[in-house]
Design a binder for these strands. Sequence first.
DNA 1: TTGCGAAGTGTTATAATAGTACATTTCGCA
DNA 2: TGCGAAATGTACTATTATAACACTTCGCAA
Lengths: 173, 173
Amino acid sequence: MTAPTPSDTAAAFERHDHSHCAGAVMQAAEGRARAEGLRLTPVRRRVLEILLEEHRALGAYDILDRLKAEGFGHQPPVAYRALDFLVEHGLAHRIRRLNAFAACMHPDTDHAPAFFICAQCSAVAESAATPLRDAAQAAGLAIGFTIERVTIEAIGTCPACHPGTAPSPQVPS
Amino acid sequence: MTAPTPSDTAAAFERHDHSHCAGAVMQAAEGRARAEGLRLTPVRRRVLEILLEEHRALGAYDILDRLKAEGFGHQPPVAYRALDFLVEHGLAHRIRRLNAFAACMHPDTDHAPAFFICAQCSAVAESAATPLRDAAQAAGLAIGFTIERVTIEAIGTCPACHPGTAPSPQVPS
DNA sequence: TTGCGAAGTGTTATAATAGTACATTTCGCA
DNA sequence: TGCGAAATGTACTATTATAACACTTCGCAA
């Protein structure tokens, strides 16, 4: 059970060895799939891999283009179904502000994530949001509302895109 | 400066005199428009009125239908432009989870709203989310991310739809 | 008061995102 | 081996959102 730390989250905005972190996450995802009897079929696995390779939020049709090119089905439901599966089982997240999807970077943690989206370079970092979820829970309680899930998406500027800081955005998009 | 209180927010989920609260909000919006030199033109004003009359989140095309029927333009940009204006100036909010828009119920308050969306009856309550915004701010700081805006949307069950509580949903939709 | 530039409105057309319905195949397992 | 459930592939459609451009209206300065 590796809980995400602030430095994990910060790492998402820094240059790092994608293939390494992607590999680790993929292994964790496979472990979870085995443990819970999820069927990580070729399409689903490939979609997760694509998300991990890109290491950013991708639209369903971006994914679909890749799938087509690799000989999978070429109609929208192919992508949406795989994405729905991944999201439902916590292996990917939907980023509503972007109408896009990103691989979950902590699939072995039961977490309530928040997302930090850079308006400049559209990099996305996923962060544990337990305090935020608790605050929301409390606010809900005060008005008699029972919360199932909370979407928390912050838009702003990532460290790499701050003027006077690191020069070039990591994900030009 | 009327700050929203938990009981204001709770009221959103209870039967109440819409025409009264809508009227008050409309007046507040007009006040703001005058004060800030915003042009609350017929289309814009009408869109805000529609949102207030319905007192729930409406899709852009729902709005467009009403506008058509009332002799305004009948192409999507007519609705989207008015909605964009209202959102930009804080007179309405976009609810991303629903791909919909709702009138801001506290247009005279500078606020960071959170939304509570009932999965059963799709009623939406707007609540002040200062603690959540602060928590997000802190989380962002920890990773060097500067937050511009945060979207907070909770999905769950409103008081009226709780089993064993009040019987009928207020907004059947 | 005229007339200029900016803002607003309306229209056509199209893009981008998402889902329904149904036939076929594959998988797990009795 | 073969049954039922799950997964896949396809055609088709629905929903949400923008781009581009012509025309009108508004605020304001000469």
